[in-house]
Design a protein around this nucleic acid. Structure first.
Length: 259
DNA sequence: ATGTCGCCTACGAGGCGA
């Protein structure tokens, strides 16, 4: 089974690129983030014509998560237990589904904005609650392969940004965010891509020629349970998808499972 | 260069979010 995650930054703008890549890369299940639309606005026809079914969760022009798959989705879940709200809204940032016995979550972690912003406290709380929910999933069904996939908006290592000097006092690299990321490892959800792809970014800002200068960040991850990780046979960060006309600012991250 | 995108409202251009 070939599984991928991709922050598409508006599916309505990106539908051609995404469906072309899905077919070309022979992907079975794609977790998308930032679809930036309601389900009724999602460009379904192009995906269905390419042979993909859809599970969608979008409330408005912000956030939005989804799955496109050649495999039927089962036990679809919107949000997770005790997921925090922001300004009294449970935002569209988490969607779970099971594909051929593999439990996957498409996740768009809050950005945080600045260290002083209420959005930053929300980010940390959101991660903390996700870790608590994940610990339950793992302990309840340790034999079920489980992966958390998406845009974590955290650069866990100094080498995951182009220049740490640019990130003094910024979000994405703070000790609290990195600790929140490490908490997943402590409950048995480990980065299944890093061992196979030790270096490389997954995101480059549109501004300031970040991509041509290769000034990027590694913030998109696939964290697998033991039952998931032991079946991973290959992984890839598809840097080429940042090139050409109308790219997302993020690229796909892919794993091949022996499943 | 506050240097780019994408979505909204509402019809021009500004606001928000990343």
């Amino acid at each position: 089974m070939r599984i991928a995650t991709w922050n598409v930054n508006s599916i309505r703008t990106r539908v051609g690129r995404v469906t072309d890549w899905l077919v070309r890369a022979d992907v079975d299940v794609l977790a998308m983030q930032e679809i930036k639309c309601k389900p009724e606005q999602f460009p379904r026809v192009a995906f269905e014509a390419a042979g993909y079914q859809l599970e969608l969760h979008g409330l408005n022009q912000w956030n939005g998560v989804a799955f496109a798959s050649r495999i039927r989705a089962e036990d679809v879940e919107i949000g997770f237990a005790e997921m925090p709200e922001f300004k009294d809204v449970a935002e569209a940032r988490a969607l779970g589904a099971t594909f051929d016995g593999v439990r996957l979550w498409s996740l768009y972690v809050p950005n945080g904005r600045t260290l002083e912003d209420p959005h930053y406290a929300y980010k940390l709380e959101w991660l903390d609650r996700l870790a608590a929910a994940s610990a339950e999933w793992v302990s309840n069904e340790p034999e079920t392969p489980l992966a958390l996939m998406g845009d974590f908006n955290i650069a866990p290592l100094d080498t995951d940004v182009w220049d740490m000097a640019e990130f003094v006092g910024a979000t994405h690299v703070s000790p609290a965010e990195r600790q929140a990321f490490q908490a997943f490892e402590q409950i048995g959800l480990t980065d299944v891509v890093r061992p196979l792809v030790p270096t490389g970014y997954t995101y480059w800002d549109y501004q300031q020629l970040r991509f041509p200068r290769n000034e990027g960040m590694r913030i998109d991850f696939i964290l697998g349970s033991d039952a998931f990780s032991e079946n991973v046979k290959a992984a890839e960060i598809v840097r080429d998808e940042r090139k050409g006309e109308g790219p997302s600012d993020h690229v796909p991250v892919v794993v091949d499972l022996d499943w």
